[in-house]
Each structure stands twice: as C-alpha cells, then as structure tokens.
Computed example of a mutant assay.
Amino acid sequence: MPSKKRVVVLISGSGTNLQALIDAQDTPALPNAELVLVISNRKNAYGLTRASSANPPIPTAYLALQPYLKKYPEKTREDYDVEIARMVVNAKPDIVVLAGWMHILSEKFIEIVEGRLSLSGPEPPTISIPVINLHPALPGVFDGANAIERAYEAFQRGEIEHTGCMVHRVVKDVDRGEPIVVRDVKIEKGEALEAFEERLHRVEHEIIVQATKIMLEESTRAS
C-alpha cells in the first residue's frame, strides 16, 4: 500500500467543514488520506475539540495574530504568516486546506508552502504543496468576508437569481484563485437567511471533500 496522503487543515471556528474531512478520510470519498494537523487562529475554536476527539486524535496547534504581535512587538503580520507556514511545512503535508480560516494569508505564506521561499529550520518542501480554500460564493462574486449575507441581500434586491460556493486554489488575491469545484445553490423566495445558510453549508461539506480528493489525485499523478 502506498503511504497515506497527508492533509493539514486551517480553521477559525466550529469546524463543521473540518468534520466533513475527518469523516471522509481514508474512505472512498477521500481514499488513502490522513489529517495530520489542524491549526487554528482562535483559541476557543470548537474545531480543535473535533480534531482532538477524532479517532485517532488529530494533532492540533494554535497561533493567533494579535497575541503573537503583542508578544513580539517588533514582528509584523507577515512574520505571523511565516510562523503559520513553518508549522504547516513541519507537518510535511501533501495538501493544505483552508476550511473556514478567517485570516488573509500573505504571499510569503504561499511562497514558503509552495517551496519558492526557504525557511530557516525546516527543510523546504520537495514538491509544491497546493493550498486550497473553501469560499461560500461563486467565482468572481462576493469575494472576501460575509459572502453569504451579501449574496442573500443581493437576491432580496433582485440583483441575482442564485449564488453558490466553491473551493479554489489560494493565490495572493483574495478568493481569486483557480476554481477546483464550483456548485450553484439556489435561494428560495421567502426563505430565511438561517435556512439558506444551512443548505449552503451542507453543499460546502460535500465540495471541500471533493476538491481535496481531486487535488490529492492530481499530486499523485504528478509524482
């Protein structure tokens, strides 16, 4: 049997998309894959509990921006991203999945993980590690934060007929990387925001697993 593909997941919140990956790992939905590290930028993120409660438990790590900058006043936001990249590279992943990670990563993070910029300490990746992100909107529409609410409000104003969600490659421009999986999600007339959000999240749980599988298969063919 080939060695399992190693997955690192970055989270900020409750971790429902992380749970979808946990449930799918090493099943036909995500075969020969293992979550090896979950990193959170929020100390109380319930996703950390999901990871430590998994069977077997998944190692976790925590590093938040503001406490980091307070502890190291001479450091910058970019330095923080370098530390996150160091944690990622040390785990030797085959893919990095941003699953509700509420922090815009700088280009330096991407350069390190893709092996274009070396760090002192860990060996640089021998291959370019893909970084993918789940975003609750269609490509080129409602980039950035609060995409679900913005789409819902646009529907109420008659500006759009539907919205959707996608998983895309991470590049320096927010939510502008190449889409890997895109899914339309209809908004029903008279539907409450909470009900629509719940339906959209169910689709997100599917596509984050699908996109991770696609990217791991692609990396297998390339190696």
Rank of each mutant, 00 (worst) to 15 (best):
L105E: 04
L105H: 06
S106I: 05
S106T: 10
S106C: 07
E107P: 11
E107Q: 14
K108E: 13
K108L: 14
K108Q: 12
F109H: 01
F109E: 01
I110S: 08
I110P: 00
I110T: 05
E111S: 12
E111M: 12
E111C: 10
I112V: 05
I112A: 00
I112R: 05
V113I: 05
V113F: 02
V113P: 05
V113L: 02
E114P: 02
G115L: 02
G115W: 04
G115R: 03
L117K: 12
L117A: 14
L119T: 00
L119G: 03
L119F: 01
L119I: 00
L119V: 06
L119N: 04
L119P: 08
S120C: 15
S120Y: 14
G121M: 04
P122C: 06
P122M: 10
E123L: 14
E123T: 14
P124T: 04
P124S: 06
P125C: 07
T126Q: 14
T126W: 13
T126I: 15
T126V: 15
T126M: 13
T126G: 13
S128M: 10
I129D: 00
I129M: 08
I129P: 03
P130N: 08
P130H: 06
V131Y: 02
I132R: 05
I132D: 00
N133H: 09
L134E: 08
H135V: 00
H135L: 02
P136T: 08
A137K: 02
A137M: 07
A137Y: 06
A137N: 10
L138S: 03
L138G: 00
L138P: 03
L138I: 03
L138F: 00
P139F: 08
P139R: 05
